[in-house]
């Protein structure tokens, strides 16, 4: 564990907590894409399948449970909780996210580190996470102005993988044979997709107004 990865995990945790805070306290999911949340639930479900078979550390297992629990409960809230569901922008959240799942699965079957069931699904979760934010970014463009909590959620979610890139650079130079091209490229693509969001986020943030 290094400071970059810890910062990355904490940033990721913060993004989830900000979203849960928004949904649970003000009972609103305005501006939040249910489709992105569904993709993230699939990402964690396929990435943490090894939670019962390979134990890394208490921290690792705990965080996996947190991410699994929060992603599924956010989907549940947005789908079935009356008050929250009412604030869900169904008409605008129309990105065909299931069209993202199949290509990621095919790509994982073609490009992976080991051809085993767990490893292919783990690789699939990497590819899917790289594009999971797309429905949210499209919804963002359509709803134009979003509230600060949603903006902070997206900012933190984009930032965590950027910190992971620093972690991979650090581990590459400090651990022999630490080479994971698939993870690195997927993580880079994922972070680059946030580029224009970061640009507007900082512009607005500096201007002191909401994110538009």
């Amino acid at each position: 564990m290094n400071i970059f990865r810890l910062a990355g995990d904490m940033t990721h945790l913060a993004s989830v907590l900000v979203l849960l805070l928004k949904i649970h306290t003000i009972k609103s999911c305005a501006g939040v894409s249910l489709r992105t949340q569904e993709l993230y639930a699939i990402v964690f479900a396929t990435r943490y399948l090894d939670i019962f078979t390979s134990f890394v550390s208490v921290y690792n297992t705990f965080m996996k449970l947190v991410f699994l629990g929060s992603s599924f409960s956010i989907v549940w809230y947005m789908r079935y909780h009356k008050a929250v569901h009412r604030t869900y922008d169904r008409e605008q959240d129309t990105f065909r996210h299931w069209f993202l799942v199949l290509p990621c699965l095919v790509l994982a079957l073609l490009i992976h580190e080991k051809f085993t069931f767990l490893e292919v699904l783990w690789t699939f979760s990497l590819y899917l996470e790289a594009v999971a934010i797309l429905p949210q970014l499209v919804l963002l463009q359509r709803t134009r102005n979003i509230d600060n909590l949603t903006g902070q959620y997206i900012f933190l979610l984009g930032g965590y993988r950027g910190l992971y890139i620093l972690n991979w650079i650090y581990r590459y130079f400090t651990e022999p044979h630490f080479v994971h091209w698939i993870t690195w490229i997927a993580g880079l693509v994922q972070t680059l997709l946030y580029a224009d969001f970061f640009y507007y986020y900082f512009l607005r943030f500096i201007g002191g107004r909401g994110v538009e």
């Binding site: 995990d9 990721h12 890394v56 690792n60 996996k64």
Partner: peptide, 10 residues
């Protein structure tokens, strides 16, 4: 030994 490569990251 060729320890099956564990994913130690989240």
């Amino acid at each position: 030994q060729d320890q099956p490569q564990k994913h130690d990251e989240l």
